[in-house]
């Protein structure tokens, strides 16, 4: 019996990676995969911007080489997010979150706008620091309970401090409010499909984190 009141649809064991299928995680996983597919198939939009000093518009498009790199990074991000959704192991979750974070930075790293790059770099710093509470929390859970499997942790109550550390870690990794609100800066870069992937990963990871926290407490 899963404490969330959900029926476990199934467990897929691939070595030490245990996939963990409940209605919630399955829904989230499908969203992530669906978005990755749509994103990989679509071409970026052409941004229309106005020009100072005259009556006219300019259309900014992304060069093909940049598209390829960013699409690759976005697919990595999508796969990492999908993995985050479905994993049943806290440590794998932490790794996937970190990977999604790096891929987020990678998506915008190819742009030529200094302010976007600056924001990406600052976000990267936060990302690296946040590795400490995230992995630290995972290690503490392992050290205190002896397991990393969410399936087993469901019946064990973890101390609130660890949960807070875990939340801090995830918030830092995906770069939201208290740590780095200006992640919104990244979203102003060009290339809707890839930028949306950043958003997808951020939001889905928040949802999944809520689920994990509920499991831990």
């Amino acid at each position: 019996m899963i404490g969330l009141g959900e029926s476990l649809i199934g467990l897929i064991k691939l070595g030490d990676i245990v996939l963990y299928l409940t209605p919630t995680t399955l829904t989230l996983f499908l969203i992530a995969v669906g978005f990755t597919v749509v994103m990989a198939l679509s071409r970026p939009e052409t941004q229309v911007e106005l020009v100072f000093g005259m009556d006219g518009y300019k259309k900014s498009e992304i060069p093909m080489g940049e598209i390829k790199f960013r699409r690759y990074m976005a697919i990595v991000c999508g796969v990492a997010t999908a993995g985050t959704m479905i994993t049943g192991d806290i440590f794998d979750f932490a790794l996937f979150v970190t990977l999604a974070g790096i891929a987020d930075v990678g998506i915008v790293a190819a742009t030529k706008k200094p302010q976007v790059l600056d924001a990406a770099y600052q976000y990267g710093m936060t990302l690296m620091i946040a590795g400490l509470p995230l992995f630290g929390a995972a290690a503490l859970i392992l050290g205190t309970t002896g397991t990393l499997s969410l399936h087993e942790l469901d019946t064990i109550r973890v101390s609130g401090v660890v949960a807070v550390l875990f939340i801090l870690g995830v918030l830092g990794e995906i770069g939201v409010a208290p740590f780095y609100a200006a992640k919104a800066r990244l979203f102003r870069a060009l290339g809707a499909p890839y930028i949306i992937m950043i958003h997808v990963s951020t939001l889905l990871i928040i949802v999944r984190t809520v689920e994990i926290i509920v499991t831990l407490l």
Binding site: L4, V48, I196
Partner: peptide, 26 residues
């Protein structure tokens, strides 16, 4: 489970974001 609703709400935000960014209009 209400957590699925949270995912649905997430999708709503994605729609807002996607609709806005995909059109190319400032």
């Amino acid at each position: 489970n209400f957590l699925i609703l949270l995912a649905v709400f997430t999708m709503h935000k994605l729609v807002e974001h996607g609709a806005g960014l995909s059109s190319g209009s400032p």
